[in-house]
Design a protein around this nucleic acid. Structure first.
Lengths: 343, 343
DNA sequence: ATTATGTAGTTAATCGATTAACTAATCGTT
DNA sequence: AACGATTAGTTAATCGATTAACTACATAAT
């Protein structure tokens, strides 16, 4: 591939002039400009971002860490990040961690070696201190985890999981339920824990003792929801309302209940969390807690850009903590359609 | 961030020795080796892949172009690509094109400027010649499009869409259907066209005239399937079997039929194409044509690696064309469960 | 003892950009 | 005319690695 030197030679100018034509940093006479652009065209020249980045100490690249892109929740977040990145001339490295801390760590190391300008880490599992050390002073935005950071280069964005789950519990209570089951996410994932806490708290406040809420644990996958639902249906007396820690598990629970010929929501009500795109289309349509996904990705990227600028300007601001609002979405899986119509 | 020079200074050796310790290219005495590793540790040094790539003319990066990562089909392909990339020390740039040729082109340009070692282009929409010019001699593997390439640096992998759709048509015929409708993908997408051709051919061979197969067009989205299904249900006489060009549109068709209180498959049979993960869970479970996704991604990456090696070794092989097999998956949306049990 | 061979490590050119510092030419002012 | 100010373009150092070519020294062969 042609380089700047060859372009300069063909146009009979210095490489500095070629650079100036490309970046518009200095005035170049129309005459030379024309010669240069013609040479560029002729050689099909494209500047090397590699060399440019080395000199500028900026790559215009970012690293995006997510647990699993086949999960529609994360896919939407990724698109949100990408949309803002592209607008600002950034390219995005994407890596899946499968929720494994060791993979997360090695990917961060790799990102640092690539000299990404910043990192967005979605639903991280890594220990706080290890993460800070690995980030090596590069700007990082964390999505979907509530952490107490002291490092000013690391911002945190999270959804109000507690409130969303509490609203859902209140909705169940309002519909007369008084025996519950939960399909929770992993015990060591703060997001999952917060969702359970919000749900439990609201039940207690509604006068339901903890003994009337059975909790099972999964790891956010469809099949976990399916398996745990089998256990829940074996309980006696059988709970009448089930809260799954995310939509994928709720889908699994729905499937198990349908196979057992239970009517939803008449025999058992089911709800999830996330409001993934297809949750409106499963049958019955899933009651769930909506959290912004595309918008959260956009926000994360915008904040990352801001941090990158601040770092270049040597401004050190305090670490940000942003809370996004989760809102209850009521659909057929928790409310009897016919009853609703009769209202 | 520390660089090699600083490490060399601290360890009191030359930078060449540091490089040799890191890459093991030359023998270094245990004594020096120890001093170097200690210095690296102390400075938390990480080599700059930027500088390395500039010198080596290899970045160990690849660009992945896909229409839309929120489509589970492409998400699985992406994971397949990533799995092989990681095993071989490659990082992956991911970009969504939304099926727009102009975006595709500008992303390829950007990849070239980044000096990616190779590109995987999934379901491209770009004109053949423009693509070849933009690729600028860099290895590229195309997935999901049947093209007649003369450029030895560009390989093509595609699924036998024709055969898969034909098998599906035969399945419908065997079940006694004789009035059909199709929800096809875009007319200008070869993959979509091939699927329709296979289906139509099999119908003709089964003695069904073209007039008994109504074709509607969408663009592979859930909502297109929904909208077209409304039109299909308005036909009189109403077709008894519907073939959607992909699973997402089949899901939409399913939804429209259910809302209209049609029984599936008794009143109307529906089938899709792709066999996306959740197609086994929709109700009724979707009959569809399976095509390898994760494996196709892996294959694409393996072939890309091979091309990269060949190019470095200055071996020019002929362009490859690989055909993957599509296989019919029969589920409840096309076969009456009760009848099946009675068999 | 002298020369050839091998080994361990260093020096310096290089990859392809950016840009500070410099030169040469033009212009305006007194 | 002489001086400084402005402008247009060039030269050369630099970013942080890799590696060919080189040096210095030890060992082996004659």
């Amino acid at each position: 591939m042609a380089n700047m030197k060859e372009v300069a030679k063909l146009a009979n100018v210095s490489i500095a002039t070629v650079s100036n034509v490309l970046n518009g940093n200095k005035y170049v006479s129309p005459k030379l400009k024309k010669r240069v652009t013609k040479a560029i065209e002729e050689l099909n020249y494209r500047p090397s971002k590699l060399a440019r980045s080395l000199k500028l100490k900026r790559t215009f690249q970012l690293g995006l860490l997510i647990p699993d892109i086949t999960n529609p929740y994360f896919a939407e977040v990724a698109r949100g990040v990408e949309s803002i990145a592209l607008q600002n001339g950034y390219q995005m490295f994407l890596c899946n961690t499968d929720g494994e801390a060791t993979r997360e760590l090695s990917i961060i190391h790799s990102f640092i070696e690539q000299h990404v300008d910043g990192i967005i880490n979605v639903a991280p599992r890594l220990d706080e201190n290890k993460m800070v050390k690995a980030a090596d002073n590069r700007p990082m935005v964390i999505l979907d985890r509530h952490l107490s950071f002291t490092n000013p280069l690391i911002d945190v964005i999270y959804t109000n999981n507690f409130k969303g789950s509490a609203e859902l519990a209140e909705h169940f209570l309002k519909n007369g339920h008084n025996l519950f089951a939960c399909i929770a996410g992993p015990k060591n994932v703060p997001t999952a824990v917060r969702r359970m806490e919000g749900f439990k708290k609201a039940l207690i406040e509604g006068g339901i003792p903890a003994s009337r809420n059975h909790i099972f644990y999964g790891s956010f996958k469809f099949n976990d929801g399916y398996e745990m639902m089998l256990k829940i249906m074996n309980l006696s007396p059988r709970p009448t309302a089930v809260f799954a820690g995310n939509d994928m598990m709720a889908w699994g629970a729905l499937e198990a209940a349908k196979e057992a010929n239970l009517k939803i929501p008449e025999d058992i009500a089911i709800a999830g969390f996330d409001n993934v795109y297809f949750s409106q289309f499963v049958v019955p349509a899933l009651t769930t807690v909506h959290q912004p996904k595309f918008e959260a990705g956009q926000l994360a990227m915008n904040i990352l850009l801001e941090k990158i600028e601040n770092k270049l300007a040597n401004k050190q601001l305090k670490a940000k903590k942003l809370e996004l609002d989760a809102t209850l979405i009521i659909r057929d899986s928790s409310v009897n359609k016919k009853l609703k119509k009769e209202e």
